[in-house]
């Protein structure tokens, strides 16, 4: 563990320049550049808002703004995109970087770090864009938003650990790389992001508690839509899960590091 951190520190320059290069090369020769990073999820919000707001707006309890649904959507999507992006990128990370891992000797732990760094950066930009829209819609900000910092950390941890476990296994069993995107898609729709939790029949609602992402999105929604602190119980639960998964994933990552190069 300590060794990992030490080599990360030694390669900090590489991590930073990797993140920067990723941004540069992604938006090289495009006029709007990094704006696209915000346009994509916001377009998604616009589409859902346009199509679903009339159907679902009435179901949002305790909020009277006509834009409530759009705000609700954005809150959930902010959490989901971060989680989704980290998992999907970690999933194929080692396969994509296989050639590099075979040819160059560098601490492997820098690879997921770069992913986390660039996803977090994307997420921050998206958040800034959302804040702008909130202001336009007349939604109020409050100091409760400070909760987003720990929530983001937990989301990153959960995404990273799930992504690492799947990514490591994907090197050996490539079916995982094919299956996981489908599972993620299902997870998205089983999580109350585009719809409020209360449209699920009372008798089935307890099932939501089994979905770890639900605890995160609902906390985000609590903070951003209702300006309230999230339910501590859910946050603690998900933190414990994320920490446990993190340990498991780091353990697997370490054990697999040597073997991965053999089969890449």
């Amino acid at each position: 563990m300590l060794g990992m951190l030490r080599s990360l520190w030694q390669y900090r320059h590489f991590v930073v320049s990797s993140i920067r290069n990723e941004m540069i090369s992604r938006f090289a020769r495009s006029k709007l550049g990094s704006l696209w990073m915000m346009i994509n999820p916001l377009a998604q919000v616009a589409i859902y808002a346009l199509i679903l707001s009339n159907v679902l707006a009435a179901k949002l309890p305790g909020i009277e703004s006509q834009y409530a649904y759009a705000i609700y959507l954005m809150a959930g999507l902010l959490a989901w995109t971060l989680f989704n992006e980290i998992v999907s990128r970690c999933l194929t990370l080692f396969i994509e970087q296989g050639n590099l891992m075979k040819k160059m000797s560098f601490p492997r732990v820098t690879l997921p770090t770069v992913v986390v760094g660039s996803c977090a950066l994307n997420n921050i930009l998206l958040f800034v864009a959302m804040l702008g829209i909130f202001a336009l819609l007349g939604h109020q900000f409050s100091s409760v938003m400070i909760w987003l910092i720990p929530l983001t950390l937990i989301t990153v941890m959960l995404g990273l650990s799930v992504g690492l476990i799947l990514g490591v296994m994907n090197v050996f069993v490539r079916d995982i790389g094919q299956g996981v995107p489908i599972v993620l898609q299902m997870l998205f729709w089983f999580t109350p992001i585009v719809y409020p939790a209360n449209i699920i029949p009372e008798s089935y609602r307890y099932l939501l508690n089994l979905n770890p992402v639900y605890h995160i999105t609902s906390a985000y929604q609590q903070v951003l839509v209702y300006n309230q602190a999230p339910q501590i119980g859910g946050v603690v639960l998900i933190t414990v899960i994320a920490l446990a998964l993190m340990l498991l994933s780091l353990f697997m990552f370490r054990r697999a590091s040597g073997e991965m190069v053999d089969v890449l």
């Binding site: 030694q10 590489f14 560098f106």
Partner: peptide
């Protein structure tokens, strides 16, 4: 930029 990146990969500051 590539030189910068590649040298970083070799562990240089």
């Amino acid at each position: 930029q590539n030189v910068f990146h590649a040298a970083g990969l070799m562990g240089f500051s």
